[in-house]
């Protein structure tokens, strides 16, 4: 097994959970685990105790797709790792694909497990989590993006003082320029603070239909949350979004109405104490993570539930 390079992800001055999840996963592969810390701070190095070496590149404290991708390429070219692990995230998507294309390395996306020794093989949940796909990336260098929540972040958390090495930042064309970080809009309701969430997904056909969820939420003193399609359609504000690009929630009870359970959504809610799912598709992946399920039309079920609770 060659060396493993974990690309640390950080946002707004803090290492993201996915960094530790990748370290946890990398540890079990059997090779030497090193970290590429692009930008980042001295303080972050101390949290990367799982790593043997931390390679640092001074590419600015704020993420920039162009400069961070160039910095990663510099580390990979200098250190020739076998498995390069990047988060399956907004930043990781830029860096991993760019590296794979620039260096001609095979790549697998959204992986939930990796095994090394000989060829690197990975498993990913694709097609909205409906199909598990195993890929063989060969015995040479490869790029793997790791789906968040595949392992516990605690597995990769360890304080320590790994050896650090600075790698020169290569010149870039400066075609992408960071302007500013935009913090989340202040929300009318903090969905992360609610005991009960009534979450709606694609099964809701129109904006007017949201009313049925609001009525159920009212009798439960709950807030209405939503999966990405509802937010992208502009039917609810971003502050209500649960999932990969939204918020992580852990309410006592999460009622999922018409949510199929794509991995990106599960990432944000699978820590809920009790999950109740209602969906017309009995094979919807949401039923795999839910504790209780009901196959049925969300409108019928929500209305009956509201009546029964009133």
């Amino acid at each position: 097994m060659g060396d493993i390079l974990v690309v640390a992800e950080h946002l707004n001055g803090e290492l993201a959970d996915i960094t530790f999840e990748m370290l946890g996963m990398a540890k079990s592969l059997g090779g030497t685990v090193n970290v590429a810390l692009l930008g980042g701070s001295d303080e972050m190095v101390g949290q990367l105790g799982v790593a043997a070496n931390v390679y640092r590149v001074d590419c600015g404290s704020d993420y920039n797709p162009e400069s961070y991708s160039a910095a990663l390429k510099a580390v990979v070219d200098a250190k020739s790792p076998q498995v390069i692990m990047v988060g399956n995230s907004s930043m990781g998507m830029d860096m991993a694909n760019t590296l794979s294309a620039q260096n001609g390395l095979p790549m697998a996306a959204a992986c939930k497990s990796i095994s090394g020794g000989g060829n690197t093989t990975v498993e990913a949940g694709l097609f909205g989590g409906k199909i598990n796909v195993t890929s063989d990336l060969g015995s040479g260098a490869c790029v793997v993006t790791v789906a968040a929540g595949s392992v516990s972040a605690d597995d990769g958390k360890a304080d320590g003082s790994p050896a650090t090495e600075s790698i020169d930042m290569p010149a870039t064309d400066g075609k992408v320029r960071f302007k500013k970080l935009i913090m989340p809009e202040s929300a009318d309701v903090d969905i992360t603070a609610k005991d009960v969430l009534v979450a709606i997904g694609r099964g809701i056909g129109s904006k007017d239909d949201i009313e049925v969820a609001e009525e159920l939420a009212e009798v439960l003193d709950a807030a209405v949350a939503a999966s990405r399609p509802i937010i992208d359609a502009g039917w609810m504000p971003k502050s209500r979004q649960v999932g990969k690009s939204g918020l992580k929630v852990k309410p006592k009870v999460y009622i999922a109405l018409g949510i199929s359970g794509a991995p990106e959504h599960l990432e944000g809610m699978k820590g809920s104490s009790t999950i109740i799912a209602i969906n017309t598709d009995k094979n919807a992946p949401i039923f795999d993570v839910a504790h209780y399920g009901m196959v049925g039309d969300l409108f019928d079920v929500a209305e009956e539930l509201t009546e029964a609770l009133e």
Binding site: L105, T134, L220, I275, D288, H291, V295, G296, L309
Partner: peptide, 30 residues
Amino acid sequence: ASSSITKMAHPEKGGGAKMSSDIDEIVAIL
């Protein structure tokens, strides 16, 4: 650059949800 698919499978159903068809059961859980 390419990699090869060696297997495709439907995810194994884990413990999964306890399925119900009765609203009263859901009310009882709540």
